[in-house]
């Protein structure tokens, strides 16, 4: 059985997420910046009392962002009991049904997306969206954080 997917847009690329990985979509989120953190950690958000880490989709997938006027969307995913959100330009649609086809990942995809992919989704209109594996994505974030330990800045002050 083909599962349901959430189709999102980031710049000129559409990305699909398995519906079971997605907890909810947030708009108009106020972020608290995280000092000295890698760029991919966009900030912290309050999700009804739970603190979730927002990941910058543009940095994560190396795709230039093209946000709409109303601001970006946060796709909240949940892995291993922890919530994180991915900042994307917009959420387009939730799709399911037999018209969908899950195909192997084509080698032509850029590595920043290919390495996080578990295949591509072909929809009825023949459009293709890479299906992002939430677990691979979280593993990449952990590596990035590990490779870039924070450096306290001696700075200067009067």
């Amino acid at each position: 059985m083909i599962p349901s997917f959430v189709i999102t847009r980031l710049g000129d690329v559409t990305l699909a997420f398995r519906l079971e990985d997605v907890r909810e979509v947030l708009l108009d989120v106020r972020l608290t910046p995280i000092p000295l953190s890698p760029k991919v950690l966009a900030g912290l958000a309050n999700l009804r009392g739970e603190v979730i880490t927002a990941l910058d989709g543009a940095t994560l997938f190396s795709v230039p962002s093209r946000p709409p006027h109303g601001g970006q969307a946060h796709l909240v995913i949940r892995t291993e009991g922890l919530g994180r959100s991915i900042v994307l330009d917009e959420v387009l649609v939730v799709t399911s049904g037999t018209d969908l086809e899950l195909l192997p990942t084509p080698p032509a995809l850029p590595p920043s997306i290919r390495d996080l992919c578990q295949g591509v989704l072909r929809q009825k209109d023949q459009s293709i969206s890479p299906v992002i594996d939430a677990r691979l994505l979280v593993a990449r974030i952990a590596r990035v954080a590990q490779d870039a330990p924070p450096r306290i800045n001696p700075g200067d002050w009067k």
């Binding site: 106020r30 608290t32 995280i34 000092p35 000295l36 953190s37 950690l41 912290l44 958000a45 309050n46 009392g49 739970e50 603190v51 979730i52 880490t53 922890l82 994180r84 974030i141 952990a142 990035v144 954080a145 590990q146 330990p149 924070p150 306290i152």
Partner: peptide, 27 residues
Amino acid sequence: VKPLSPELKLQGLWAGATVRGDGRVTL
């Protein structure tokens, strides 16, 4: 005190985070 995701714990600068009265997250 709210727990942080592991990538933030790796930073070693934060003991956690909290949501204050204005709804904003504070480290």
